[in-house]
């Protein structure tokens, strides 16, 4: 397990160095996107419309923050990750079209995303589910809020972060997926647990 500090924009070369179980901290620009934002971004691409932010080399964060309004400004109060599997239907295309290098979320993603990460050079980095206060602490500034019409959790929150982490590389760009290997092991362990409990 190695620890890396990465700055956006992140190059493909930097991504290819990373292995599952490595820990990274990201500084620079992170953009939140959930189901609706993924869908719209891909529609924009099809229609040839530019996105409000160029995502190349950036990190996309599966997150719907808790926010409050203070003196006409948005303050991000708590910003932990949401369950990533909901974005599985979009993510391979999203990585291919926008050259995003890091997807941050919780709970892992499936084989389509793993394959796209291998092909185009991206990683899935798990941030601790529920650690919303810790995430908010590393957010230095809200660069801009886009697609507000999608609602607070679904909008694009373009954030400047400093040492955002620890993020565990759970899917690397070499086809390894921790969540898949863990669940395979768990299925095997289940029989032993049954025995232990006299089932």
């Amino acid at each position: 397990m190695a620890v890396y500090k990465l700055k956006t924009p992140i190059s493909e070369e930097e991504i290819r160095k990373l292995q599952v179980n490595d820990v990274i901290y990201i500084s620079g620009t992170v953009v939140t996107a959930r189901d609706q934002a993924h869908r719209r971004a891909l529609e924009y691409f099809k229609e040839g419309k530019p996105l409000p932010v160029n995502l190349e080399g950036l990190a996309v964060y599966h997150c719907g923050p808790a926010v409050k309004r203070e003196d006409d400004k948005w303050v991000i109060v708590s910003a932990g990750p949401t369950t990533s599997t909901r974005m599985e239907i979009f993510e391979d295309e999203f990585i291919e079209k926008f050259k995003v290098r890091v997807i941050i979320g919780k709970g892992g993603m499936g084989p389509k995303t793993t394959e796209a990460m291998k092909k185009y050079g991206a990683v899935y980095a798990a941030f601790t589910g529920g650690a919303g206060a810790l995430a908010a602490k590393s957010i230095k500034r809200l660069i801009s809020l886009e697609w507000e019409d999608l609602g607070i959790p679904e909008a694009l929150w373009i954030l400047e972060v400093e040492d955002f982490g620890p993020l565990v590389i759970a899917i690397d760009s070499h086809g390894n997926n921790i969540f898949e290997s863990v669940m395979k092991q768990v299925e095997a362990n289940k029989q032993k647990v049954y025995e232990k409990l006299g089932i």
Binding site: A66, T128, G130, G132
Partner: peptide
């Protein structure tokens, strides 16, 4: 470790520990 840090920070700053309240 991240959970413990998060818990401590949330308590100190009185901010919600998780955005899903």
């Amino acid at each position: 470790q991240a959970i413990l840090e998060n818990v401590e920070y949330a308590e100190k700053t009185r901010t919600p520990m998780c955005q899903d309240t």
